[in-house]
């Protein structure tokens, strides 16, 4: 079927992209990997072999321990919150209420905004200043007489990350809603009808039929949100700057490399992040591509 001049043309046309991906993704990962096994510190590259020393140092580094703890708190609150809120919003829109497309757009809106903008706005909303300098949500609570709700937000010792996760939930629950809604729409109506005839309440239908059928959607959302939370960076920077209390691996990598010039350590953090993301994403990719190719 193929004409001769077309036989290689397809390869010729995609090869620039393949070469770019090969260099900028896989080549650079290998390069980072090599830096992470070196003694490079300071402005001039130093590729002296250092084995896995940098990794061992990180795992005994108290700052990295804080990073892991913060990442776990952030992931728990952010992923959990986005899933619950996203599902509830999807159920709400699934009822076929009026103005559905308006609400769908409204909830998705934050996705189109950069984490920096979200961060700057939430920085005001969650401003921990008290007294006459009080602003944002604290001021709202105080004005409404809800003083017990006034709190230190992201400056709360130990649990500050949970406040950061609130801003991330605001940003991503619309996305979670969208994928849940798409999933709900693909469930045949007969199933719900049958359940209704059997006398199931709306709550039971969602709880016993829809939620279990949407398990693959939940898993996808879990993986997508989970890998985002491993990468969280801009949002924290915009809300709080670089504070040790709210440190995460991405910020540590940044500071180690570009502020401290500990290139080898920075590269090691980058590689640890990559491996954690890969553990989540590779099985997901395999699964999705497999189900994709089945007609």
């Amino acid at each position: 079927m193929l004409r001769d001049k077309d036989r290689y043309l397809n390869i010729v046309l995609v090869s620039p992209s393949i070469v770019a991906v090969l260099i900028f993704i896989y080549g650079f990962i290998a390069w980072s990997g090599r830096v992470s096994l070196s003694k490079w510190k300071g402005l001039t590259p130093d590729y002296t072999w250092n084995g896995i020393r940098n990794y061992l140092d990180l795992f005994s580094d108290p700052r990295f321990a804080v990073d892991i703890r913060n990442t776990l708190i952030f992931t728990g609150v952010f992923v959990g919150g986005s899933l619950v809120l996203g599902f509830l919003l999807a159920v709400m829109l699934d009822q076929g209420l009026r103005g559905e497309s308006f609400f769908r757009s409204l909830f998705l809106f934050p996705m189109a905004i950069s984490y920096i903008v979200t961060g700057v706005v939430w920085r005001w909303l969650m401003n921990p200043a008290m007294g006459s300098r009080m602003s944002g949500l604290n001021l709202l609570f105080a004005n409404l007489g809800l003083d017990p709700l006034v709190n230190a937000w992201h400056t709360t010792p130990k649990w500050g990350m949970a406040a950061i996760a609130l801003a991330a939930i605001w940003q991503m629950s619309g996305y979670t809603m969208a994928i849940y809604l798409a999933g709900m729409r693909s469930i045949p109506h007969e199933l719900r009808e049958a359940a209704r005839i059997d006398g199931a309440s709306e709550f039971q239908i969602y709880r016993r039929i829809i939620l279990p059928l949407l398990a693959p959607v939940t898993l996808s959302a879990l993986i997508i949100l989970g890998h985002m939370s491993l990468k969280v960076f801009d949002l924290i920077i915009a809300i709080a700057g670089k504070q040790l209390q709210l440190d995460v691996p991405a910020i540590y990598m940044w500071q180690a490399t570009f502020d401290g010039l500990f290139y080898a350590r920075g590269a090691a953090i980058g590689m640890i992040l990559l491996i954690s993301v890969a553990v989540l994403i590779i099985p997901y990719l395999r699964y999705t591509l497999k189900t994709d190719s089945q007609p």
Binding site: S32, G270, V277
Partner: peptide
């Protein structure tokens, strides 16, 4: 193809220094 797709998910911290 899947090797290209994987690039969509990588944390850019892992390629930042070489980049």
């Amino acid at each position: 193809y899947p090797f290209i797709l994987f690039g969509m998910f990588i944390p850019y911290q892992s390629i930042l220094i070489p980049l």
